[in-house]
């Protein structure tokens, strides 16, 4: 997950990098407690979610303020697949990806004709509108939602193997595999055509890139990945309900993408860790200094928002690019 653009890094290096990350997570998972394992799993979920936004916005130049709703599609699909087909968990994940990609293709077809504020408005309305229909259909379980049970860790892993450690493993593995795949697609013909589109639509069209199809494809792929992270999120929460996918979630993911640096995949870890860590740090800080309940509730939002503004001003291309440009000076 480091330095996607660097031409000197070959697939082999990259593989080693991924392997090392996996190894680190493996070792950590054996040291940390349940709570930390849960947070680790959440980081992995955000990695996937943020990657889906970066792919769409950073690479194909389309804006989405509605990825939270795509996560919801993935989460509900995974849960329904399990409830109605008693499918194993990886089938549920696959179903989530396919279903969300489908929804993304439909949304993307509409989106391909829209630009700027129109696209922002459409995806925003999508983010607000979609989760609310869960209340309308009884199979979606209304406000309470439906459960999604990834199952206990296999007995072969030992008696003391905990639930959240198991989630951490699944989430990390899924995140690593999907990031590998995203990297490859970004380096493929499609990835190149998206980048061409983003920098100049007219020129890209002259070079034979069909704008509409290329944009829809980016939306579809991005949605599929978002759906996967939604399914992972459902797993860590054991449950899927409309209140898990508020508008704030969409904004939260967009925030993570900016903190990571929207224009490169390289920083996704930074944004994800920030999203998970900042609330924790803020809470413990306000506990230590004031113990005020209301401070504890606002401080995380305040810090995330302030950080967001700072990032937009100081490192609009993200922390990784910032470091790189400083190095090359």
């Amino acid at each position: 997950m480091v330095a996607v653009h660097n031409r000197h890094i070959t697939n082999k290096h990259r593989f080693i990098g991924f392997f090392l990350i996996g190894l680190v997570v493996y070792i950590l998972s054996n040291i940390v407690d349940e709570w930390r394992a849960y947070q680790g799993a959440t980081v992995a979920v955000f990695v996937v979610a943020i990657a889906s936004v970066i792919l769409l916005t950073g690479y194909s130049g389309q804006i989405s303020l509605g990825h939270g709703a795509l996560l919801a599609v993935g989460a509900y699909t995974a849960a329904l697949t399990q409830i109605y087909f008693s499918a194993p968990i990886w089938i549920c994940f696959a179903a989530a990806v396919i279903m969300t990609a489908l929804v993304g293709a439909i949304l993307g077809t509409a989106a391909a004709r829209l630009s700027g504020p129109y696209l922002a408005g459409t995806t925003l309305a999508f983010a607000v509108g979609l989760p609310s229909i869960a209340n309308q259909f009884s199979i979606l379980g209304g406000e309470q939602g439906i459960s999604f049970d990834a199952g206990w860790p296999p007995l072969s892993l030992g008696e003391s193997f905990t639930q959240y450690k198991w989630f951490l493993w699944i989430a990390t593995l899924t995140a690593l595999i999907s990031m590998w795949w995203v990297q490859n697609i970004l380096r493929s013909r499609y990835g190149r055509s998206w980048r061409a589109l983003k920098s100049n639509e007219v020129a890209a069209e002259i070079c034979g890139i069909t704008i509409g199809r290329s944009k829809v494809l980016a939306f579809t792929v991005s949605a599929g990945i978002a759906g996967l992270s939604g399914a992972l999120l459902a797993m860590t929460m054991n449950n899927v309900s409309p209140s898990s996918f508020p508008l704030a979630l969409s904004f939260f993911i967009a925030t993570g993408a900016v903190l990571s640096g929207v224009s490169t995949l390289g920083g996704v870890m930074i944004g994800s860790v920030a999203l998970v860590a900042i609330p924790l740090i803020a809470t413990s800080a306000s506990d230590r200094w004031s113990g005020s309940q209301s401070l504890a509730t606002v401080l995380p939002d305040f810090i995330v928002s302030a950080l967001l503004i700072l990032t937009v001003f100081l490192a609009p291309k993200g922390p990784i690019e910032k470091l790189r440009s400083r190095h090359s000076k």
Binding site: A120, F251, T255, D301, S305, L308, V312
Partner: peptide
């Protein structure tokens, strides 16, 4: 043509305003 960053900046400002109101009004 980048409109994403300004959007995000205004989202950040929205968050800060809400938090400040919280601080002031509890």
């Amino acid at each position: 043509q980048e409109i994403f960053l300004p959007i995000i900046a205004t989202l950040g400002i929205l968050g800060v305003i809400k938090a400040v109101l919280h601080f002031i009004y509890g």
